[in-house]
């Protein structure tokens, strides 16, 4: 499955984002110790931590989408059958692609403005703002890419008439569990039948 690769890469990006937060955490602790023990300040740790938060979370969005962890309200959704749900799933991905396209476009505008102005952060570190902003934009871009690929896979499944595959790719997590339980059930039964035949 081509999505396997996408999933693996997204996971590594999410972990990289997580380690930015861990580094921010370590810097905060170092700053506290420096301040209390050596009466000195690293200067700008709060700023770095803010950048880490923006970049780290942006890098996690793609993996969270593949993990179906962007929460959706299923009150109406759950009343439909496979076909109805598949349409809801595709609509939901289309909405995601739409909103994230706008987000990516305007985030890129933030980045290009920073590059043009040569903007830098306010603290003594004076980090060029374009660096964290480029990392942030890249994360949003990856999220959009993941959403587009998922949408394409879902549409392909739809045209094949494989409604259940849409649910597996983009349905509520609940549906996946149901489907895999069903699958396991079938496999077990098949295995049982095979065993009976031999």
């Amino acid at each position: 499955m081509p999505l396997k690769g996408l999933r693996a890469i997204s996971r590594y990006i999410l972990l990289a984002g997580g380690f930015l937060i861990v580094i921010a955490c370590a810097l905060i602790v170092v700053e506290i110790v420096m301040r209390q023990v050596f009466r000195r300040s690293l200067g700008g740790v709060d700023e770095l931590a803010g950048f880490a938060l923006a970049v780290g979370t942006a890098w996690s969005f793609g993996a969270v989408l593949l993990d179906k962890a962007h929460v959706r309200i299923d009150t109406v959704y759950s009343h439909f059958g496979d076909k109805g749900r598949a349409l809801f799933d595709i609509l939901s991905l289309t909405g995601t692609v739409l909103f994230m396209s706008a987000m990516l476009y305007f985030a890129t505008e933030v980045l290009t403005t920073s590059i043009r102005f040569g903007a830098s952060s306010q603290s003594s570190l004076a980090i060029p703002k374009s660096v964290p902003q480029a990392m942030w934009v890249a994360g949003l871009g990856w999220f959009l890419l993941v959403a587009v690929i998922l949408l394409c896979c879902c549409l392909a499944a739809l045209f094949r008439g494989d409604w259940k595959q849409v649910g597996r790719l983009a349905g509520a997590p609940d549906i996946e569990t149901e489907l895999s339980a069903e699958l396991a059930d079938t496999e077990q039964r098949n295995a049982g039948e095979k065993g009976a035949q031999s």
Binding site: D74, T75, V76, D89, S92, G95, T96
Partner: peptide
Amino acid sequence: ALGLPIAIGLGL
């Protein structure tokens, strides 16, 4: 209600 992710719904 259409089942869009919460964030996407708010954004749209």
